Simulated scan of single mutants.
Amino acid sequence: MSDAPRVLFWRHGRTTWNVEKRFQGQTDIDLDPVGHAQAERAGRLLATLGPDVIVASDLKRAADTAGYLSRASGLAVEYDKGLRERFGGSWEGLTADELSRRWPVEHARMDIPDGENISEVGDRMTAAVERGIAKTPAGGLLVIVSHGAAVRVGISRMLGIPDERRELLGPLSNCCWSVLQRRGPEWRLMEHNAASLPEPVVLSDDA
């Protein structure tokens, strides 16, 4: 087994605000019944990967999602506020249509006038991941349970994608995950927006 760590980023299950296309930010919204079912199914699948450490945002939708993996794997969940969603200021609770009408230019760029700067989100996400990696054994699997925008910024940072070009990485659906693995000094994206377990890679990409 390689000593290179793997980090699996898992987005929380569905909420009513996801369905209504409301900006959630750090408003503490619960999973809806579909979200609980998604997390229960995904938790059973991810437990078969043998995670070593689970670290979650302390917001309920992520913490409750992580709880399903905890119960399936027998691992305790650690919580890190650095994994919270981007703070959305006055945008939180408004629908995408409302945001487009009130802030057409800013919404198109996701430039929240009184919200958290993307660079700050990237800084705290990568710091939280590094804290998790420090607790993960060599060659182990760290599961990070977080939020859509925060995860995209965190993954982009780890891949060396500038914050302003984070849209190069496609969105992460509710309760789907992405996997990064370190190769030498760099991280590689091994899976993105997955909802099923991967087939093993038989041939090396260097062949």
Score class of each variant (00 low, 15 high):
W10Y: 04
R11F: 10
R11N: 10
H12S: 11
W17R: 12
W17H: 08
V19N: 02
F23H: 13
Q24C: 12
Q24V: 13
Q26I: 01
D30H: 12
D32Q: 06
D32V: 08
V34K: 04
A37S: 10
L46A: 14
V53M: 00
S57A: 08
L59D: 11
K60D: 05
R61Y: 14
A62V: 04
D64I: 06
S70W: 05
S70Q: 12
A72D: 07
L75W: 01
A76S: 11
V77F: 14
V77H: 00
Y79N: 08
G82E: 04
S90A: 15
A96H: 14
W103L: 05
V105W: 03
A108S: 13
A108Q: 01
D111W: 10
D111N: 15
P113M: 03
D114E: 08
D114C: 06
E116M: 13
N117T: 00
N117G: 12
S119F: 14
E120N: 10
G122T: 02
D123P: 03
R124A: 04
T126R: 11
T126W: 09
T126C: 08
A128G: 05
V129E: 09
E130D: 14
R131G: 07
A134E: 02
K135A: 06
G139N: 07
G139E: 07
G140Y: 07
L141V: 03
S146H: 10
A150I: 09
V151Q: 10
V153S: 12
I155M: 09
I161A: 15
P162M: 00
L169I: 13
S178G: 15
V179C: 09
Q181E: 13
R182Q: 14
R182V: 14
R183I: 13
G184A: 05
P185W: 02
E186Y: 14
R188D: 08
A194K: 12
E199C: 07
P200T: 02
P200K: 02
V202Q: 08
D206M: 03
